[in-house]
Computed example of a mutant assay.
Amino acid sequence: MLPDDNRIIDVRFDEQGLLLRQTDGRVLALPIADTSPLHKATPEQRREWVLTEDGRGMNWPALWPLAPDGMVSVWAIEQDALYEHALARLQQVHRDLSALPPDERELVALWRMEAGINNGGFMQFFCNWGEETCHLAIEALGRVGAQGTRQCLNDMLNVAAHYGETEEMVSLSDLPGMLPPDERDRPYALDQAFWKYPESLAKAVVRHYAPRVASHTG
């Protein structure tokens, strides 16, 4: 079954969290975080959910604004599973990224990109993982068709090229000051553009990699 065909057909709550039954018979069990509006919602409010257009996400309009893929999204859950698989394989090869097959290398690079930029911005990602991983993530974004995110990351890398002009050891917070004056706001602007997610990256990643990983492991 292709990812797009596997929809949510039943939703239940239990003491642990949320249970989503899908077309293929699988049930996804999701804990509800203490910070989630669902944690404090009444039973009546919890029942007031609506499915996204593709049937693979859920929104609660009375609790928070509608999200295209849903505030609970099967796309995001399946993307996380792909990332976890790739990271587990990386551990098995003693963190030697070059020892992984191409699909798994790209998934690791995409995970590093999202984790790094969402946690501390592009420069945190770049300083933690370097130019090679950045280029690998750019290639992967092109492969999955996430052209808006790819352009954003490519622009970030072009800005980072200015930082290679000095051999001084500086802290991450000092790096923007090393740019020309008219470029100093550029890193934050690009981070903001990335955080808006120009397209559904989870959907693009799952559509491209899920069938490929399944064919390798099945």
Rank of each mutant, 00 (worst) to 15 (best):
T42F: 03
P65W: 02
E114D: 14
G116C: 03
L175M: 09
A193H: 02
E168Y: 04
D5N: 15
E48L: 01
A109G: 14
G57Y: 04
D69Q: 13
S173A: 15
A204H: 04
R186F: 00
V27E: 00
M169P: 14
S171L: 09
W49T: 02
Y209H: 15
V27H: 00
L157N: 06
G148A: 01
R143L: 07
N59V: 05
D69T: 14
E78S: 01
A99T: 04
G142C: 10
M123L: 15
R89C: 10
A204L: 04
F125E: 08
A214D: 15
D5Y: 12
L141N: 11
N154A: 12
Q124A: 10
E199D: 03
T166V: 06
T133A: 09
T23S: 11
H162L: 06
T166E: 10
A88N: 15
D155W: 05
V213D: 14
K203Q: 08
R207Q: 02
D24M: 11
L20Y: 01
G148E: 06
G25P: 05
Q147E: 09
L38D: 00
R7M: 07
A202C: 02
L201W: 03
S73W: 01
P65E: 03
V205L: 11
H162I: 05
L179I: 01
P61N: 04
K40D: 00
R184I: 04
Q45S: 07
G130Q: 08
S173M: 11
R95K: 11
P65M: 03
V11C: 07
Y209G: 12
T35Q: 08
E165D: 14
F13M: 01
Q45I: 01
A115S: 11
H94A: 08
T23M: 07
I77C: 14
N6S: 12
A137L: 05
G218T: 10
G17Y: 01
D54A: 01
Y163I: 13
D34Q: 10
Q16R: 05
D69K: 10
P180E: 05
V11L: 07
A115T: 13
Q22S: 11
V205F: 04
L141R: 13
D80W: 01
I138T: 12
A210W: 06
E131M: 12
M113S: 05
